[in-house]
Amino acid sequence: MFDMIIPAFLVGGTICVIGQLLMDLTKPSFTPAHVLVSFVSGGAILGALGLYEPLMKIGGAGASIPLSGFGYSLAKGAMEAVEKRGIMGAFSGGVEATAVGIAAAVFFGYLMSVTFKPKG
């Protein structure tokens, strides 16, 4: 049950530090939304170059839970689908591989938004 906890902590923490440095050392117009977008695209590009796979092996959830892991899954899905289905796979693969995450985000997001009131 407690396998991989320490690697997950170290890798996940380090990835978050990169995000913090991006926010603190760039212009103030670099908002949390910019951080998330950079991490998704960055994760996808690193995944395509084969550089994110080792992180997943070493860090487990430390690499899959940060949003760069979402980007990695998108890229990996697209490449695997191209292997199977050719060019159409480039369009279907990414979304297929991340469908559970996207659907969960939309569904739970909607559920919570209509259940709770903001406290201000």
Binding site: M23, P28, T31, P32, P118, K119, G120
Partner: peptide, 20 residues
């Protein structure tokens, strides 16, 4: 009003971000 102005000019109040 804090809550009307924040969401018009900045971010939603429940968003977990750091203020400068």
């Amino acid at each position: 009003h804090h809550d009307t102005a924040e969401r018009q000019f900045r971010l939603p109040t429940e968003q977990g971000s750091q203020r400068a």
